[in-house]
Amino acid sequence: MLDKLRMRVMDHKPRVIEAAGLPEAAVLIPITCVHNEPEIILTLRSKRLSTHSGEVAFPGGRRDPGDVDLQFTALRETHEEIGLSPELIDVVGPMDSLVSRFGIKVTPYVGILPDVFELTPNADEIEEIFRVPVSYLLEDPREMTHRIDYEGRSWYVPSYRYEGFKIWGLTALMLTELMNVAFDANIPLSIPYDSDQEKKSR
C-alpha cells in the first residue's frame, strides 16, 4: 500500500492557494507500516497552548524566517514536537494547501517513516502521540460531518472519533484528501453527506 501511496502522491498536482500576505505553516503527515498495515501518526496538542489547544493535529507549525522552504518547516517542527529526526523521514511530496480558521495558509507534506524509530513528545506542546490505521479511515466511520467554508466554496468534512481522540477540521480534511488521492477512497467532500442514503447503500 505504501508503494501505491508513494506513486499517487508523487503524481498528484496539489492545489496551491495564492494567499499573499497570509502567514504560512506546514505540517507533516507521517506514515509508517506495521505488519503490512499502514498507520498515520497524529498528536494531541497540549491544553496549555494558546491556539488549537487540546486538539488533534499533525506535527507542524509556522514558517520561521530562516526556513529555506515549507518542507523544511514541516521537518523542523516535527523534530521539535515529537523528536523525529528529519533524516529518518522520506518526504514523498506536498498535498493541497489549505487556509485555517485563524487565516494561516497550511501546506501538508506526506512523509514515510522506517520500520523502527522513536518518538518523544515535547511536553510543552504535545500531550499524546497516537496512530490511526489507514484501513479505519478508508471505512469512513464518521461521527458527524462539519461544513467548512473558504475560497467561496463549502467543504463537507467528516469528523471521526478514534479510541477517544476526536479528529476533525483541517486535520480531518487533510486525511480525507490523502485517502482519496492515494487510495481511491471516494469520500465526498464537495456535497453534503447523506447518512441515511449511505446506510441504504451498504
Rank of each mutant, 00 (worst) to 15 (best):
Leu28Tyr: 04
Ile29Val: 15
Ile29Glu: 04
Ile29Phe: 03
Ile31Gly: 04
Ile31Tyr: 11
Cys33Thr: 13
Cys33Ser: 15
Val34Trp: 02
His35Arg: 15
His35Glu: 14
Asn36Val: 07
Glu37Thr: 14
Glu39Gln: 14
Glu39Asn: 10
Glu39Thr: 13
Ile40Ala: 01
Ile41Gly: 03
Leu42Phe: 08
Leu44Ala: 03
Leu44Lys: 14
Ser46Phe: 03
Ser46Tyr: 03
Lys47Leu: 06
Lys47Ile: 07
Arg48Phe: 08
Ser50Asp: 06
Thr51Lys: 13
His52Asn: 13
Ser53Ile: 10
Gly54Tyr: 03
Glu55Phe: 09
Glu55Gln: 13
Ala57Phe: 10
Phe58Cys: 10
Pro59Thr: 15
Gly60Glu: 03
Gly61Glu: 07
Arg62Pro: 00
Arg62His: 11
Arg63Val: 08
Asp64Tyr: 11
Asp64Gln: 12
Pro65Phe: 08
Gly66Gln: 13
Asp67Gly: 09
Asp67Met: 05
Leu70Glu: 01
Gln71Ile: 02
Gln71Leu: 05
Ala74Lys: 02
Ala74Gln: 05
Arg76Phe: 05
Thr78Ile: 05
Thr78Phe: 06
His79Gly: 03
Glu80Ala: 14
Gly83Trp: 05
Ser85Arg: 13
Ser85Pro: 00
Ser85Ala: 11
Pro86Glu: 02
Asp90Ala: 07
Asp90Thr: 11
Val91Tyr: 02
Val92Phe: 07
Pro94Trp: 04
Met95Gln: 06
Met95Trp: 04
Ser97Met: 12
Leu98Ala: 11
Leu98Ile: 12
Leu98Arg: 05
Val99Asp: 03
Ser100Leu: 07
Arg101Ala: 07
Arg101His: 14
Arg101Glu: 10
Arg101Val: 10
Phe102Trp: 02
Gly103Lys: 05
Gly103Glu: 03
Ile104Tyr: 02
Ile104Phe: 01
Ile104Glu: 15
Lys105Asp: 07
Val106Leu: 12
Val110Ser: 05
Val110Asn: 05
Pro114Ile: 09
Glu118Asp: 15
Glu118Ile: 14
Thr120Asp: 10
Asn122Glu: 15
Ala123Thr: 14
Asp124His: 04
Asp124Trp: 04
Glu125Pro: 00
Glu125Asn: 11
Ile126Cys: 08
Ile126Glu: 09
Glu127Ala: 12
Glu128Tyr: 10
Ile129Asn: 06
Arg131Cys: 11
Arg131Val: 05
Pro133Ser: 12
Val134Gly: 01
Ser135His: 05
Leu137Ala: 08
Leu138Glu: 01
Glu139Met: 11
Asp140Asn: 15
Asp140Gln: 04
Pro141Lys: 06
Pro141Arg: 11
Arg142Leu: 07
Met144Gly: 09
Thr145Met: 10
Thr145Phe: 00
Arg147Met: 14
Arg147Gly: 00
Arg147Glu: 14
Asp149Phe: 10
Asp149Cys: 01
Asp149Ser: 12
Tyr150His: 12
Tyr150Asn: 14
Glu151Pro: 00
Arg153Cys: 08
Ser154Tyr: 06
Tyr156Lys: 03
Tyr156Ile: 08
Val157Met: 06
